[in-house]
Amino acid sequence: MSEIALDRALEALLFLSPVPVSVVQLCELAESSPSDVQRALALLGTRYGNESGLEVAEIAGGWVMRTRAELGAVCDRLRARPPDERLSPAAIETLAVIAYLEPISRPEIARVRGVSAEATVGSLLDRGMIEEAGRAVDGGAMRYRTTPAFQERFGLRGSSDLPPITQFELSGAEAEAVRQRLRDAGHLDDEDA
């Protein structure tokens, strides 16, 4: 398949697919080599630039053709997001803990968050954002990890596409601010901070 024909074929496949398509799949479907597919994807990326309403992006280990982020509001007028699709702040925080520490058990999540995570973990399981990842030892607590659906939802290329957690750590001044808030709330004495 010539490259010109290949990029059109990939364009059609990505338009049609309801899930991200891996490069391996694209190679099989288009009967082309990985290097040709990569070149054709790059060509498609150029074709669907900022002037287009669509973009070709790599998420969840595959490639998709999707609407551009800045058009989300107008797209949502056509496709109203059901309320149950939204995630609560507690669910988002729990998801962040699991994403960075996976595989992680429910008691470990509760220790990190400082509150019970039973209901939140159940909700994330129901939504397909996380899945069971086995037990560390026989009889131990079940551990959980994020799913490709999580990567799709948050536009991640893969499980390692998250920003480093050190980027979010508190600076010394911010940590001191936390202590000050505790003092203000009566949880710490001045001389002990």
Binding site: S17, P18, M65, A69, G72, E85, I92, L95, R153, F154
Partner: peptide, 13 residues
Amino acid sequence: LSMQDGIDGAVRY
């Protein structure tokens, strides 16, 4: 993650 979720408006395909 919330900001990513908000930008995406969930899956956009």
